[in-house]
Design a protein around this nucleic acid. Sequence first.
DNA 1: GTTAGCACTCCCCTCCCGAGAGTGCTAAAC
DNA 2: GTTTAGCACTCTCGGGAGGGGAGTGCTAAC
Lengths: 346, 346
Amino acid sequence: MADRSELGARKAAVLRAVVEEYVRTGEPVGSETIAERSGLGVSSATIRNEMAALEEMGYLAHPHTSAGRVPTDLGYRYYVDQLPAALKLREAQRRAIAGFFAQTMLDLEDVLRGTTRLLSRLTQYAGLAVPPSIAEEPVLRLELIDMGSALMVLAVGQHGRVDKRVFDRPEGLSERALRDAEQRLQTVHGRPLGEARAAVLRMAAEGAAEERAVLLAAADALGDMQRTPAEPHLLVGGVANLAEDVAHWRSETVRRLFEALERESTLLGLLRDAGTAGDVSVTIGTEHPATGEWHAALVAAPFHAGSTALGTIGVVGPTRMDYLTAMAAVRAVARRLSELATELGA
Amino acid sequence: MADRSELGARKAAVLRAVVEEYVRTGEPVGSETIAERSGLGVSSATIRNEMAALEEMGYLAHPHTSAGRVPTDLGYRYYVDQLPAALKLREAQRRAIAGFFAQTMLDLEDVLRGTTRLLSRLTQYAGLAVPPSIAEEPVLRLELIDMGSALMVLAVGQHGRVDKRVFDRPEGLSERALRDAEQRLQTVHGRPLGEARAAVLRMAAEGAAEERAVLLAAADALGDMQRTPAEPHLLVGGVANLAEDVAHWRSETVRRLFEALERESTLLGLLRDAGTAGDVSVTIGTEHPATGEWHAALVAAPFHAGSTALGTIGVVGPTRMDYLTAMAAVRAVARRLSELATELGA
DNA sequence: GTTAGCACTCCCCTCCCGAGAGTGCTAAAC
DNA sequence: GTTTAGCACTCTCGGGAGGGGAGTGCTAAC
């Protein structure tokens, strides 16, 4: 950790006070307020000097000549990186987390869906979760299902994720050949989807013509699954929480954020990047084109089963975010989630 | 259909003009405008008289003394029920629909997800779809899957819908008993979930102790599936479209609508009611507590495979909605969807 | 280096005014 | 009896004008 002397202890304290006050009230904050509340025992004139310096350095901004100061994205960044001791969650929040994880839950996807709601309740922002992708985990089972004029191939992943593809029934496929193909598929398990698919292709090569057609089609479907796993890749909960902030935002901004929540890909990218960080990671406004575009901040953390990464959870909200609470909540939930996932996997 | 004389042909024409003008512009509309555009060949003074009468009857409202008129929910209702000849969709819209259904799509759930987006694109509101519930359709296959410390029971519905439940592995379950139970479950198909469950219970009664435990647990899981099928029951697309309107709405209203979109139950109820109507049905504002609360209107229509109802699609938007386009779009999409579903089911 | 003091800037609120839109009424025209 | 022209009236909206106030930045003293 870079030490605070980079800024000087007092400047750091001022910055911190500005961020916290602004996050609390939403109003630009003046030197007087800081002088009173920061506990620095120093006059507002001194604070003004410090603030001017902080503005010069890019940590604070000035909506107009005679308004108070507002943190810039850089200011939030410094705040997040350097300043506060890790926050303890409030008792009620800890109870909410404990209560949630006290339920018996066996299906990871259900758990994650609940997690997004939990996070949104804890933070008042929108909760996010990326479940483990079936493309990357070992396949527990492949099934072939007769739907009449079509067939379905169905894959169950190690963590209970299910994906399926429907494809046309090959011409003149006999009951018998279908049954055979089905049984062969059932023998494939324990390997990642890519290998499973290779195994199916091998079987196709060995099999009789009729059977080959089904297996090739099934392998095709598995390939598609690998490339573009079923939605949703991104679970979202508590979007309604954004509605409040939304009123202040410009409508174009809101629109884009909502589109991104639906389109998924942008946020998935952001979350995946965040997931590689190990601990809680924070992306603030202009630090990333996407968050910049929608004036938002993202707090995210990965979760694991044992030592294998499974996915990422997080929250999105306005850059004027209560970062401490958000980070503490995401961290705590990710930890409990990893414990649960490890247990489930065992 | 009640005939227009209830209101008088001219009043009806005035009401219609007011609705269409207001929907187009969003501004309260004055007598002058109507006199010019309605083509009634009558002066604004006459229109004023008619408007005053329409207001008296509850079809129009007055934001303040000296503003133009705005339709009430009742006004929209009359408009929808009595007035316009069914609208032809614009060429571009018809092409969008044709293009969408020209894709080869075999999985109904995928289709419906796409449908919500299609509807939202066609109407600029949010698109909705309720897929057939697995609780009500025949089961194609039951599978039991070994997840190590837990088991999963998986049901595939006739239309490709998949649901699953994970439950604890019964104590001391042997590989062999598991295999047996699995094979027995696979023999159950072609009946609705409730009957399938009954069949599983019967098997449990017949089986050996060890096997019984698994089958009972599986039946339990199936019961749960029946009571509360897996999410999502409600597919939503294009919420971002609401962001524009949202800017004018009160933030509490928006919040509630978004919560409802997420909670699903309220909208599911609304859509199910709408589904029983046969053709396109419309719910406007205060006609229903829910739509009233969020100042919204819902346009919905059921879709079928052959003669069995499968689900419902629709759009939600502000009461100030382009009802004709919305109704035409929903009707057209529902028709194509029914054709497709019928074909898939055959 | 800190601070009191103070002039200065600029926002925001309120009040006011005029313009404009739209109404409702009345009395005349059809 | 219905329609319409005319007109007074009401109310919103936009644009200043002006005062208050918050907050700054500078200067000079401590």
